[in-house]
Design a protein around this nucleic acid. Sequence first.
DNA 1: GCGACAG
DNA 2: ATCTTGTCGC
Length: 236
Amino acid sequence: MDAKIYPVDPDAFAGWDGTIAGARRLQRELAARVRLVDDFAPPRLIAGVDVGFEEQGTITRAAAVLLDAQRLVPQAEVLVRRPTTMPYVPGLLSFRELPALLEALRALPEVPQLVYVDGHGIAHPRRLGIAAHLGVASGLPTIGVAKTILVGTHAPLGESRGARTPLLDGGTPIGTLLRSKDRVAPLIVSPGHRVSLATAPELVLRALTRYRLPEPTRLADRLASQREAKAAARRR
DNA sequence: GCGACAG
DNA sequence: ATCTTGTCGC
């Protein structure tokens, strides 16, 4: 049976019975609420969110960083730590990370016009990756920026920065592979909510500097994974 | 039934 | 994701 019951967060999982099968049913329902049309104000403030773990995975760390959309300079950052409630199950990432992520996002001093999420948007088996789920749960425009493919196929991609090719699932476009830097593995970009398939990669390009990851998710990733503290501790 | 499988 | 040293390349 599907006996195991997980904690249900009313904000992100209203109506979920706590089971794995129920999680997949809820994803199909929520996917119908995803809007793939550009519907956001010209970004003045953008945010990046990501999750990391401590204590053998028993503690979840969610980070949210607010940045000036024009200069890509951080304006504020939030880090929340909570007990981990669910294991990682491919396709159900949001059920493990979304509650903490929403808490971090809500704690930011201002509401961003656009949120960059570490993970897929609609490039998901049931079209509800964590970026799409965060979008419908918060109502905010979101973009998914993942480092590897979960589902879909694609044609060969050019080696230079800016090269791109569609990510397809049974012939249907679900995202874009985007080379953000020469000779580095491409980013898999897909819309989360209130952003179109064509605009998503453009918004990622605008948030790039000299690294593979766009600034919002790069900074959130560093904070969530304690890059700073770990590097310092290891040097001693 | 046998693989694949975001973070 | 996390555990981890050195090493290759711009």
